[in-house]
Amino acid sequence: MDKSVRTEIIEREYNRLLEPVTRWQRPQLVEAIGPNDLDAVAVFEEKLALVEAEVRSALESLTDGFFDSYGQVSYSSLKINSLPDIAPICEKVSKLAKTRPSSISCGFGAVPLRADFSYWRTMPKLTLHEALMLSVGLDPKSYSHDHLNDMQKRKKKIEPLWSALQFLLDRREVFRRFYPVGVSGYMSMSFPTLKRALETFGVELDQEFREALTFRCPDADHANETTKPSKSFSSQERETLLKLIAGMASEQYGFDPRHHRSEVIKNIQEDLDRAGLSMDAKTVRKWIRQAAELIPDAYWKD
C-alpha cells in the first residue's frame, strides 16, 4: 500500500477512535464559590495523554494485512471496530470515555455554565430554581429542576456525584426552608425579599449574583434617605400625605396602633417589595405610626 495512503488512514482512524475522549476540553474558569473536582480532571487529562500516545503507537504498528482488510470495511465504523487489530484500541478508549469529566467537575466557575446576569437581574421575581442556580453563578437553564431531582435519586442509590452538584442539592434544601409555598408549589420571590432571606440564612453567594442583588436592592440607609419627606414640602402637604397613609393602613390593612404584635407592618413591607419599592420594616413602622396619630381617638373605639 502506498505510504501516503497508509498515513492518511492512520490519521483518520486516530481522530475517529479518540473522538469520544478528545471532545473533552477543560473550560475557561472564573473565580467562584463552592467545591470542584479539579484533581480528578487532572488525572483524566494525564490518562488521556497516555491513551493518545498508545493509540498512535498501535495504529503505526498495524500490519499490511489490516490495511488490506480496511478497504473492504471502511464504509462502516462498526465493521472497522470489529477488526482484531482495532478492537483492543476501541476497548481502551471506551474505558477512558466512561471517566470523562463534565464541565461541572471544574466547579461553578466553568464559563460555559455561567449565567448572564445582565439579563437575570432585570427579572421582577425569581423562582426557587432560578435563585438557587444564580446564587452559585449557574445559568438556570444549565440544569433543570427535573434534572436535579434525577441527581437526587442517584444520590439515594449511592451513585457518586461531582462535588459541585452535591453542593447544589444541599443548597436546594436550604432554599426550600425560606421560599414561600403556594397552592401549586413554591412561589416566586422579589429581589428585596430574597436578599433579606439570604442574609438571614447566611448563604454564601456568587459575586456576580451579589452584585445583582445590590443593583436591585439599594442599601437600607439609601432607602431611608429616599423615604424622608422633601424639605420643600409644606406642613399641609406632609399632613395630606400622612392622611393618605393613615387611611390605607387602617382601612385596607387593618392597622391598629393598640396591637403591638400585628402582622400589618410585615404585610405592607412585602407588598412594597412586590411592587419593587424596597423599604425596611423600621421605616414602614415609623411612618405608619406617625400617620395613625392623625386619626381621631373615636375611630379606634369599637
Rank of each mutant, 00 (worst) to 15 (best):
P160Y: 00
A97Y: 02
S103Q: 12
G137K: 04
D139V: 09
W120F: 15
L138G: 10
P112N: 02
G109E: 00
D146V: 13
M123E: 15
S94R: 09
L96I: 01
I104H: 07
K157M: 13
M133N: 07
L138F: 04
P112C: 11
L132G: 14
M151C: 09
D139P: 05
V111F: 09
N149G: 08
S118M: 05
S118Y: 05
L113S: 06
I104S: 08
A131R: 00
I104Q: 03
K153G: 07
G107D: 02
L113E: 08
L126W: 04
K95Q: 13
L128G: 05
E130L: 07
D116N: 15
K155A: 12
I158H: 15
K155Q: 15
K98R: 12
L148I: 07
A115S: 02
C106W: 01
S105R: 10
G107E: 02
K98F: 03
K153D: 15
A115G: 08
D139E: 13
K141H: 11
K155I: 08
G107I: 00
D146L: 14
P140M: 05
H147T: 11
S135D: 11
A110N: 01
P140K: 02
R154I: 00
K98P: 01
K98E: 14
N149T: 08
A97C: 03
N149F: 00
S94F: 04
E159P: 08
F108T: 01
Y119W: 08
R154F: 04
C106M: 00
L148C: 13
D116G: 05
P140N: 04
M151A: 09
L161M: 07
L161Q: 06
L96Q: 09
L134T: 05
S102E: 11
K157Y: 10
G109I: 01
K95H: 11
F117I: 07
R154V: 02
K125F: 15
L128T: 06
P101V: 00
K156Q: 14
T122N: 12
L148N: 09
L128D: 11
P124H: 13
S103P: 05
S105A: 12
K95T: 13
S105N: 06
L138S: 06
T122D: 08
Q152T: 10
F117W: 04
A97V: 05
L96C: 05
S105Y: 01
L128R: 15
S103T: 03
L128Y: 07
K155D: 12
S144A: 06
S118P: 02
G109N: 01
M123A: 15
K141E: 11
D146G: 12
T122Y: 03
N149E: 12
K95D: 13
K155V: 10
L128C: 04
A97T: 07
H147N: 14
V111S: 00
D116E: 11
P101A: 08
R121V: 01
D150L: 12
P124Q: 06
L132F: 13
K153V: 10
Y143N: 10
M151Q: 14
K98N: 06
K153P: 01
T127H: 02
L161F: 13
S94G: 12
S135N: 02
I158K: 07
P124S: 10
D139H: 14
R121L: 05
I158Q: 15
S103K: 11
Y119D: 03
S94M: 03
L148R: 01
S118T: 12
L128I: 04
L126C: 10
S135G: 03
K141L: 09
